[in-house]
Design a protein around this nucleic acid. Structure first.
Lengths: 164, 164
DNA sequence: CAGATATGTTAGATTTGCCTAACAAGTAAA
DNA sequence: TTTACTTGTTAGGCAAATCTAACATATCTG
């Protein structure tokens, strides 16, 4: 099995932007990418050249930008990491949304597949928690974060039945 | 209050390496930095120039490398993030140590102060958990990760006393 | 102390990604 | 259809970070 092709964080960001634009507008154009990413059009042109050379996009002069299967796969991976990290930061750590978004943007390029998978599972675990709202320990963490003090832990009582 | 001076992730890595070397060997030399960071000595020289220009290190030709107070403060901040992330990845997510180390290395440059603080608190919370070993929900997460199935949750029983 | 070895520096090339300025192509409207 | 406007491309430059090759300094050892 051939290994996944790789690219720089910067190029990953371009792929992600292209995916977003195609979802929102059906097509991705140089101008839109440029605006979304806060770079000038020539930077986009240059990036597209690189991404095209490496087989992640198809782009003919003055045309729309298309993702290759390889490019789409990578873009989707990046984007799902982005969303997952965002959720983790906001819902578990209660980071303010603006900062969470910025952090997720950078972290998505920093984490391994293993960490990505584990974090995803972690979120799933918390979200499918039998508690109607946030699980008990997460509320307890909130309190700990705000006050530095630990709520009395109900679980403790139960656990003691195992020890004599 | 003046804002903290900033530098690139690459330069942050140099600062961190210098701090590590000073801790281990009392002094930091170009060669050691070069070996620790897997770059060639001229790259170190060039980085030291930059860091020196920006007030993070003091380095006279052929001498040891010293951190300025500013540089030391930043280096310590990076390093504590590094350790914190490492711990989080290993102890909460049970990532294999080698991968955890690599991820921590990259993530330390990606997270904001807010995320850093919250994660630190989160770790503290787990580690000061009344359970003798790992808190209940963490064991439960392990099981969830391995099997995809949720253990019956003892807490649930207790919580029900609050309803109705 | 003098040569050999290790360490550090300088010069200059390369890569990546960004920019501005100038030009080219497409689109819309008079 | 010809002019004006928008969009895209090319050329060329800059900054960061890396490298190799060549040179300089320091240190060790006979």
């Amino acid at each position: 099995m051939r290994k996944d092709k790789r690219c720089s964080s910067d190029m990953e960001d371009y792929l992600e932007a292209i995916l977003v634009l195609k979802r929102e507008n059906k097509v991705a154009r140089v101008r839109d990418i440029s605006q979304l990413m806060n770079v000038k059009p020539p930077s986009v042109a240059s990036a597209l050249h690189t991404l095209s050379r490496d087989g992640f996009v198809i782009h003919e002069s003055y045309g729309y930008v298309e993702l290759t299967p390889e490019g789409e796969k990578l873009a989707k991976r990046i984007q799902s990491r982005h969303e997952m990290l965002n959720k983790f930061l906001r819902e578990i750590l209660c980071i303010n949304p603006k900062i969470a978004a910025e952090d997720a943007c950078r972290m998505e390029h920093a984490i391994s597949q293993e960490t990505s998978r584990k974090l995803t599972k972690f979120l799933e675990f918390v979200q499918t928690c039998p508690d109607h709202d946030r699980p008990d320990w997460l509320k307890s963490f909130d309190h700990y974060f705000k006050t530095g003090k630990r709520l009395k832990c109900k679980v403790r009582v139960l656990k003691q039945k195992d020890s004599t």
